[in-house]
């Protein structure tokens, strides 16, 4: 047993951030913070759920077979201490900001849960109007053609462009008079040149050349409405 295993039990990382990110990418797991852009609350919720599952799995083992975390003096044995906040900082966070109670986060871990949640959402849509504006993200695996890897934070656009997106939807007077709005071609070389001409449905979070697959492997997040 290497001497640094005790440090790993205590929550230290075994490898560097770049190597750990590559390992997580190869194994298909989510990696913080690259895989969760601007979703810190959702990530915290998901990590708490993971910790709960790990602790339940640990408590299901017979007591003689469990790892005794008291001997190893692990403060948070089921999470990693460097990026997960401790119980003390969580209490501080909850007392200082009350935004966490307002926003309700839903964790969906399987296709069955996703269909159940969509059905429940469709039933509640008539009674509760605010639920209709709920947008939830699905982690997707991308299969790009070609050999070049995708940039992180690249835009995922839908392939089929709806008609109202091409015409100006904000132009209400044209919609009243039912006049077809011709899409304007922006001159090249200005700010509008880099605006996407298709509706953006998601973002790429990580992309590497995978040696186990022999091709580019990429992950990202898209809106669930675009998948279903």
């Amino acid at each position: 047993m290497a001497f640094w295993n005790s440090f790993c039990y205590a929550g230290a990382r075994g490898v560097g951030l770049r190597e750990r990110r590559f390992l997580y990418h190869e194994s298909g797991r989510c990696h913080f913070p690259e895989d969760f852009p601007e979703c810190r609350d959702a990530y915290r919720c998901w990590a708490q759920f993971e910790i709960q599952i790990a602790s339940e799995r640990w408590s299901r083992r017979p007591p003689s077979k469990r790892v005794n975390f008291v001997i190893y003096r692990a403060p948070e044995p089921f999470g990693v201490a460097d990026w997960l906040e401790t119980a003390l900082s969580l209490q501080k966070h909850s007392t200082s900001t009350e935004e966490a109670s307002v926003t309700k986060l839903v964790i969906i871990r399987s296709c069955k849960d996703l269909t159940e949640y969509s059905a429940q959402r469709a039933n509640l849509q008539h009674s509760l109007s605010f639920l209709s504006s709920v947008r939830y993200l699905v982690r997707v695996r991308l299969h790009p053609c070609g050999r070049a890897s995708l940039d992180s934070n690249a835009l995922i656009c839908s392939a089929d462009v709806p008609e109202e997106y091409l015409g100006g939807t904000s132009d209400q007077t044209a919609a009243e008079h039912h006049q077809p709005v011709t899409p304007l071609e922006e001159p090249r070389g200005n700010v509008h040149d880099h605006q996407p001409t298709r509706p953006v449905i998601g973002r790429v979070t990580s992309s590497h050349y995978s040696w186990s697959d022999g091709c580019i492997r990429a992950y990202g997040f898209v809106l669930a409405d675009a998948i279903c």
Binding site: C111, H143, C145, Y219, I227
Partner: peptide, 21 residues
């Protein structure tokens, strides 16, 4: 679906596959 880098104008075609446990 299509993927476009932030700084480029070229779209690349990709296939999406949802990752769920």
């Amino acid at each position: 679906a299509l993927v476009r880098d932030v700084t480029s104008l070229v779209y690349r075609e990709v296939r999406l596959e949802p990752v769920l446990d």
